[in-house]
C-alpha cells in the first residue's frame, strides 16, 4: 500500500512537469491518453476487480458528456455543477444496469451483451432526439476572449492536460485504496468464485451494484470533461461501439485488475495509435492504422496475456 502510494506520487509528480518541456501537440495527445487511462481505470474497477465485463461503457461517456454540454449550452449551468451531476446520473445508470442484470441472473457473456444493448439503444435514441442535435451533433460555443479555465473548465491543451492528470491521479488513489479495502477483497472474492463469496457472507448483489455505480459515475465525470475538451458531441463518437471497445484496450494491454495497468496501457497504446495513423497518412494507405493497431492488440493477447504492467514489474523485480 505504501509502495503503491509512493508510485502514484512519483508517476503523477513526474507527469505534472510535462508542460515545462512539451509542446501543444504532445500535450493534447497526452491529455487524450490520460482521459483513456482514466476511463480504463473506471472500467477496470468493474472488470478487473469485480469480474463484470462491460462492453458498453461508452454509455456513461455519452450520457456524462451530453449532460454537461446540454446543461452548459441550453441551460447555462456551469460545468462545476454539471460534472458532479453527470457523475451522479451515470452512477445511477450503472447501478440500475447492474441491478437489472444481476437481479434477473444475467451472467457472464449475457451481462456484457446487456451493457452493449443499453449503450446501443441510447446511441440510437440520441441520434433521433432533436433536443441534443441528433446525428448532426451538439456543439459548444467558441471560448470568449479572456476565458478563465478554472471558472469555465474549458481551455487549451495545457488545461486539459492537468485536468485529466488530476482525474487520473484521483482514480489511481481510489483504485489503490479500494484494492486494500474490505470492498476490494469482497469484489475480488466475487470475481474469483461468486458462489464461494456468497457462502462466506459477501453481499454479492450489493457489491456489484456499488462497483458498477462507482465505475459508471467516474466514467460519466470523465465523459463530461471529454466533451468539454472536444467541443463537439456526436452520438456515434461519444457512445458508439468503437469508443466502448477503445476504453477496454488500454487496461487489458496494461494489465487487468492492477492499479497501474490502465495508465501504463493508455500511455503505450496512445502513441502507437497516433504513430500508426501518421504512418498510414504518410504512406497514403487508408486503414493501415487499423491493421497495425489490431496486430498490436493481437500480439499482446498472444504473448503478454497478463498485460504489459505485470510483465514489466516482474522484470524489475528480477533485476533487484
Amino acid at each position: 500500500m505504501r509502495r503503491g502510494a509512493i508510485a502514484v506520487a512519483a508517476f503523477s509528480g513526474l507527469l505534472a512537469l510535462g508542460p515545462l518541456v512539451l509542446d501543444g501537440y504532445l500535450l493534447s495527445l497526452l491529455a487524450l491518453a490520460f482521459a483513456f487511462a482514466f476511463f480504463g481505470a473506471a472500467w477496470n474497477l468493474m472488470m478487473g476487480f469485480a469480474g463484470m465485463l462491460s462492453i458498453g461503457h461508452g454509455l456513461y461517456i455519452g450520457i456524462g458528456g451530453y449532460t454537461v454540454a446540454v446543461l452548459l449550452v441550453t441551460f447555462g449551468v456551469s460545468p462545476w455543477a454539471g460534472l458532479p451531476l453527470a457523475g451522479l446520473l451515470c452512477a445511477g445508470l450503472g447501478a440500475a444496469i447492474a441491478w437489472t442484470g444481476f437481479r434477473f441472473a444475467v451472467r457472464g457473456v449475457y451481462f456484457a451483451l446487456l451493457t452493449l444493448a443499453a449503450a446501443e439503444l441510447a446511441r440510437i435514441l440520441f441520434e433521433h432526439w432533436p433536443f441534443v442535435g441528433g446525428t448532426g451533433g451538439f456543439f459548444l460555443p467558441a471560448l470568449p476572449p479572456g476565458n478563465v479555465p478554472l471558472l469555465t473548465l474549458r481551455g487549451g491543451p495545457e488545461f486539459f492536460y492537468f485536468a485529466f492528470l488530476l482525474l487520473l491521479t484521483a482514480a489511481l488513489v481510489l483504485t489503490l485504496a479500494i484494492r486494500h479495502s474490505r470492498m476490494g477483497y469482497r469484489l475480488m472474492a466475487i470475481r474469483e468464485d461468486e458462489d464461494a463469496a456468497r457462502a462466506s457472507g459477501v453481499p454479492v448483489l450489493r457489491m456489484r451494484i456499488a462497483a458498477a455505480a462507482l465505475s459508471g459515475g467516474m466514467t460519466g465525470i470523465g465523459g463530461g470533461l471529454f466533451a468539454l475538451m472536444n467541443g463537439s458531441l456526436f452520438p456515434n463518437t461519444m457512445m458508439g461501439v468503437a469508443i466502448s471497445i477503445e476504453i477496454m484496450i488500454a487496461p487489458i494491454v496494461g494489465g487487468l485488475g492492477t492499479v497501474f495497468g490502465p495508465a501504463i496501457g493508455a500511455l503505450f497504446v496512445m502513441p502507437v495509435h497516433e504513430l500508426s495513423e501518421h504512418l498510414a497518412q504518410e504512406a497514403g494507405v487508408f486503414g493501415l492504422n487499423t491493421l497495425i493497431y489490431g496486430l498490436l492488440v493481437l500480439l499482446v493477447v498472444l504473448f503478454l496475456p497478463a498485460g504489459i504492467g505485470p510483465s514489466v514489474a516482474r522484470l524489475l523485480r528480477g533485476r533487484r
Partner: peptide, 26 residues
Amino acid sequence: PAHVQFILFIALALVITGAHLVAFGP
C-alpha cells in the same frame, strides 16, 4: 476467461477490417 477471448476476437476484427481497408479501400 471470457474477456480474454473477447479481446482476441476484437483484435481479429480490427485486423480483418484493417486488411479490407488496405486492400479494397473504404
